[in-house]
Design a protein around this nucleic acid. Structure first.
Lengths: 165, 165
DNA sequence: AGCAGATACTTCAACGTTGAACGAATAATA
DNA sequence: TATTATTCGTTCAACGTTGAAGTATCTGCT
């Protein structure tokens, strides 16, 4: 009964309770996102002992010009703290998938660079990952539903980008 | 280009690439879920220094008969490992929000029980949490969209419950 | 009854994240 | 140019999760 709010409150500036559809969405969100993440994570672990965070680092680097990005740019895109990225790049570096280069224009800066080995690892893992993404999420959704989901996810993400918005 | 699959593969049993809508859903899923979780987590931390995991433990206990559940039942519902739950209940116990009781019918078993203090903490945090859930997700979604989301989330979660299904 | 295997929960070490503090370099202002 | 503030990335300690191993109890089979 308290899944998301208080039963007993009488104060008039309380937010509204969640109705049935709203509650289904919230509960469904919690379970579905947890299960999808678990499925994807398990798959990447099987494929090349990568985490989803690892994979996302490789993806973003592979799409960047010169296959490299500033550490801060990368942490922004991944929505990770800088220290988290520092340590992830350390680990990917230890595997030879990524290396660092000093940034000449801004000597505080560092580039994370995808190595050939890292690119190859991404190529090798990608089909398995794609299969998992389809099985867990995409192929479960009808085309009309896909458009709704895309719209909603983008709207929700957008609104949360600027907290004041 | 490798967000989810390999460009160069020619093998015919490869899964299909993601088309535009599919890619928007997958990317949107990753960003939106991350941002929503972050927003909700921040809110609970401000409200009572709780994590979302903590909150979910309190919610499930509050809804259970006698406000208590077996440890294994609780870890199943939360999709957490048993050791993770053991330690979460330790921490909630240290704050006085939860306690353990031995299970008489099965002497291997343990109940996690919500204390009055834990129930009060849940009541106090709930309105803030509800406000955050609405702001981050629910109030961003139109009624027709809500029904689609609910259906899809439930379908996706359902399919992933039984891996063989 | 006796025994093998399954289940419930905890413990522990290895690993990952968080968030504050730090050193270095740049930007903004006077 | 001096001064202050901001940004970039790393480090470190505290905390949380994972997954394997351990203990106790129960279930099913002979």
């Amino acid at each position: 009964m308290f899944s998301v709010t208080s039963a007993a409150s009488a104060s008039s500036d309380e937010p509204r309770w969640l109705d049935d559809d709203e509650m289904r969405v919230w509960r469904g969100f919690l379970e579905a996102t947890e299960r999808v993440n678990q499925a994807i994570t398990d798959g990447l672990k099987d494929a090349d002992n990568l985490t989803l965070d690892d994979y996302e680092v490789l993806v973003h680097l592979s799409e960047a010009p010169g296959r490299r990005l500033r550490m801060s740019e990368l942490s922004d895109r991944l929505l990770h703290s800088q220290s988290r990225l520092t340590q992830r790049v350390d680990r990917l570096g230890a595997r030879g998938y990524v290396c660092r280069e000093k940034c000449p224009e801004d000597r505080r800066g560092t580039f994370a660079c995808l190595t050939d080995e890292g690119f190859a690892a991404l190529e090798a893992a990608a089909p398995f990952h794609l299969r998992d993404v389809r099985a867990a999420l995409i192929d479960q959704v009808e085309p009309e539903e896909l458009r709704v989901l895309a719209t909603v996810f983008e709207r929700v993400a957008e609104r949360l980008r600027e907290p004041a918005g």
